[in-house]
Design a protein around this nucleic acid. Structure first.
Lengths: 194, 194
DNA sequence: TTCCGGATTAGCACTTGGTACTAATATCAG
DNA sequence: CTGATATTAGTACCAAGTGCTAATCCGGAA
């Protein structure tokens, strides 16, 4: 018994976690035990066989791909929109969005949600951000649901420049606000692109 | 011969393209031909078997995961840094970063590069963006290499607030600039966390 | 020392989803 | 009708397992 069973099983889990492609035979060589022992270990730890592991990794990846496709044009989910007037989107912060060191969401995700919403609320083929002023009022953490509200401000808008004001909050507490000065091509489209 | 062989093979490829999880048996039912025909088709089209398909999908996904892990903390690659003074990062724009409609890079990527650089240039465990003013001077497109330069401005900085100025350019032409007002906890660390 | 029990190893039958190959049919076109 | 092409059938074999039984090994307590 080189290393105790418990530790071997622990390491086995860790190893397969970062490299799910190893067969039982490769694993048995790695830990210098028989293939049968590896199988018993997997059985006890509830670790599925190679093929099942690959299947689940592949599934995860396809879902992720789909997800990133959806979030491609708009970051966050738009729940309400009145073109050229106002819009609302929600964005659920997960551990993927935070700094590992302090658990606080990286600013560019809040910006991305706001900026995407500013683009979406304008019914225009070519809406570009020109200038923008941002305020990060309070840190946002994993698990928070950020609700961004966009309001098109016509007083400040002139000609091809439109001003969109965004306020984002978590549980009714303001976490972010920004003013987006957008350029519009004017080639306004009425067709439903989305 | 219900549908011509050529078309069946074409559809087979398309089908597996969007759903690589189907076995030959399932495929044979789908196309109402024998399993052997499916195998001949795969052979002729050079389509690998289920297990190989899953393996390649899984590999792709792990690579993608790794990639996103690397770009996790810093968006763009830092090529030069002098802590608390200045830093430079480069970010290659690909088709993943642009609007499908007009081929122009989404603003939040430029912001992410700049913001990440502003965080990185400060040698602090807890550096947060508080306010920021941005200017998008010129559209950026796929293939462009954006070089962002950060300079810490000590004239404007006071106490726990530090101002970082970022200018991003493509082939020496200014495309983006921004002023980032950062909050620093003061728990300055000298260790290399990277 | 001997004996017990958990840990390990071995061996065998069986499963999935295939490959590789051969042979028999079916179908269509000239 | 005949020849080519397409399809189907059937066999042996493989990888990477599961599930099961049985044999060892090995360390500590009686």
């Amino acid at each position: 018994m080189r290393i105790p069973k418990k530790e071997r099983q622990h390491r086995l889990g860790a190893l397969l976690d970062e490299n799910p492609f190893m067969t039982d035979e490769e694993l048995s060589k790695h830990f210098r035990v028989s293939v049968q022992t590896i199988r018993l270990d997997r059985l006890e730890c509830g670790i599925p066989e190679l093929r099942e592991r690959l299947k689940s990794v592949a599934t995860r990846s396809l879902e992720a791909e789909l997800k990133s496709m959806q979030s491609d044009e708009v970051f966050g989910e738009i729940v309400d929109i009145e073109l050229d007037r106002r819009a609302i989107s929600i964005f659920d912060v997960t551990s993927d969005h935070v700094f590992q060191r302090n658990g606080i969401a990286r600013g560019h995700h809040l910006f991305a949600q706001a900026n995407s919403l500013a683009v979406a609320v304008l019914d225009d083929d070519l809406a570009l951000t020109v200038d923008s002023t941002l305020h990060f009022h309070r840190p946002v953490r994993a698990g928070d649901r950020v609700i961004a509200r966009a309001i098109v401000n016509y007083e400040l808008s002139t000609g091809k420049r439109t001003v969109v004001e965004i306020t984002s909050s978590v549980e009714n507490e303001l976490v972010f606000s920004g003013e987006f000065h957008m350029y519009r091509s004017g080639t306004d489209t009425r067709r439903e692109t989305k």
